[in-house]
């Protein structure tokens, strides 16, 4: 709480609020984007595998009926 308000006063005194401009300028933000996209792709891949397995069972149970 104290730390936050201290920082806030600091930012108030400078002209604009501090943002991660350096991270953007150096291009390292793309590393983060890439990592999240890879994780997301993995999850989606897994969901589609469940989807395909389900479709197999659905075809199978339709034959039975």
């Amino acid at each position: 709480m104290l730390w936050n308000s201290l920082l806030w006063i600091l930012w108030q005194t400078s002209n604009t609020p501090e943002m991660a401009d350096a991270l953007r300028q150096s291009g390292k933000i793309y590393v983060v984007v890439a990592v999240i996209l890879v994780i997301f792709a993995g999850i989606i891949f897994y969901l589609f595998r469940i989807e395909n397995q389900l479709k197999k069972y659905e075809r199978h149970s339709q034959h039975l009926n």
Binding site: N4, P17, M19, V32, V33, L37, F40
Partner: peptide, 29 residues
Amino acid sequence: WKLLAIFLLCYTVVGGLLFAVPRLNILNE
């Protein structure tokens, strides 16, 4: 609609991290 979900979420990851946002105190990034 699943492909649409994937597309929208990829857009959210990329756009959400890269597009410009208002510069606000306390909140920052």
